[in-house]
Amino acid sequence: MNKSQYNKCVEQYADRIFRFALSSLRDEDKAKDVVQETFARIWEHVDTVEFERAKPYLFTAAHHIMIDEIRRCQKTEPLDATYIQESISNSYSDIQEVLHSALATLPEVQRNVILLCDYEGYSYQEIGEITGLSESQVKVYIFRGRTALKKQLKSIDNLIDVEP
């Protein structure tokens, strides 16, 4: 990949990596850091990465950077599920917003495989390559993640129903 192709990658994938990271991390600054770090990594290997393989390379790098970031934060800032639950119920405006908020309650792997599937349309096999999981594992995680999201939606529905 040459410099021109690298710049094309920035143009094509920076926003998508950013969305992927922002949806997963729910933190704009950290998401920006992920994008910067992701493109820094591909630039380090610009001579060996083929342009055609740049997209999975970028998402794979972003996935690993996020996993590292999440684990690092979990050691210092334990996830407050109660707070997230309240945030979801108090601030939603449409179903997608609720879903994105609820996404934060999922384990990081489930979160990322759903995002890769829904945002980028990656096949299970491709997601498996990016995340290092088997295709079957990807399916299981996606199913469990979606089931959990559905439960979140239902609980919000119930909450709305009982509110005066």
Binding site: K3, Y6, F18, H100, K150
Partner: peptide
């Protein structure tokens, strides 16, 4: 039954100029 699917947001990364490598 009706498992939810996420739709991509329209967020954009506004710091691309720092990523581009100039010729």
């Amino acid at each position: 039954e009706d498992l939810p699917v996420l739709e991509s947001t329209d967020d954009t990364f506004d710091e691309k100029e720092y990523l581009f490598k100039n010729k």
